[in-house]
Amino acid sequence: MTFTEADFQALVITLKLAAWTTSILLFLGTPLAWWLARSTWRYRFVAEAVVALPLILPPTVLGFYLLLVLGPQGWLGGWMNSLGLEAPAFTFSGLVMGSVLYSLPFVVQPLQDAFSSIGRRPLEVAATLGAAPWDRFFSVAVPLAMPGFLTATVLGFAHTIGEFGVVLMIGGNIPGQTKVLSIAIYDHVESMEYGQAHTLAGGLLLASFVLLMLIYASHRRFRFTKI
């Protein structure tokens, strides 16, 4: 059972990646989920399908397309290069972009469910009491959807930690920059350092279990508080 400095570095990068990804997803996913929950647009199902795509796409496929887009010859990477910026492939910011896409459904779907289950009534009541739209959203919808926010945060965070295929492809497995925990485990297994692999994998297993247990425990608590 050993824990090297490189493993620690991978752990730090993983946590940072998960924190960034989850924060960005909450910021972008909240309006998206709100719109999906409230929209009466006929073709809303198209948007829902797009959001759910990362659930079924093999991560290496998603990773390969991202590589095509984010690399120096890709349209986004090339455009950033022409602006004098670094193309995002094989950098931490590229990892964040990939993870945001990859974990999108895990944040948007719980939020959408939570917003849907509020219904129109509490918001209409708030409106009749003179609350402006922003006020209605932040003072009524968000508190009522708090269990959804919690689920979205924990799932988004946990799913980013467990991500492998996308980061392997667009990250390039660079120690200290894009080598995350799941790739460190894979490398240890590949190079037959099973002891180190066990330490990391066991730790990840335990942490994931505790995280998920907390979320389910808190769900129970939410249900009680609603009564």
């Binding site: 120096p72 010859q73 193309a87 492939a89 390039g172 660079i174 490398d187």
Partner: peptide, 20 residues
């Protein structure tokens, strides 16, 4: 600084600008 991986994946990454 080592980045272990499969040769096929490395090839795709190098073609797309990986800093090796």
């Amino acid at each position: 600084v080592l980045s272990p991986g499969s040769t096929g994946k490395h090839y795709a990454q190098i073609v797309h600008g990986a800093p090796f």
